[in-house]
């Protein structure tokens, strides 16, 4: 992907004057809001419309999602044994007496 990877949408819009001029910075701002479930309905609609016509943004979104899935799968695996949990709990209750 090059620095100008969002040009595909620009080219499309320049060929078709009826298409609105894309705002890539705005879309990039919204991308993470959508990914994090923080976008409102209007922002989600803008993003979806942009995504449909802009392959690079679809790729960025998909890669970000894939990274998140891999993080969840591989970096959320530390657990305390039931014995240690019980030990911590009894130490705390004893300290409070």
């Amino acid at each position: 992907m090059s620095d100008n990877s969002t040009d595909s949408y620009d080219q499309e819009s320049s060929l078709n004057p009826d298409l609105p001029k894309p705002n890539h910075n705005e879309c990039l701002r919204i991308l993470h809001l959508v990914l994090d479930g923080e976008a409102n309905d209007e922002e989600t609609a803008i993003f979806k419309a942009h995504l449909k016509n802009c392959m690079p943004y679809y790729e960025i979104y998909s890669v970000d999602e894939a990274i998140r899935e891999m993080l969840k799968k591989n970096c959320k695996n530390k657990q305390l044994s039931p014995e240690i949990k019980e030990e911590i709990k009894s130490r705390i209750f004893k300290a409070a007496e």
């Binding site: 969002t6 990039l28 790729e59 990274i67 891999m70 993080l71």
Partner: peptide
């Protein structure tokens, strides 16, 4: 620089092919 996020060569299948250790070490 905010637009620099789109300069990476990473693809979905590349990420999915990575080992758990590579993801964990990167974090």
């Amino acid at each position: 620089d905010v637009d620099s996020a789109i300069t990476t060569d990473l693809r979905v299948d590349t990420v999915q092919d990575m080992l758990g250790d590579e993801i964990s070490n990167a974090l």
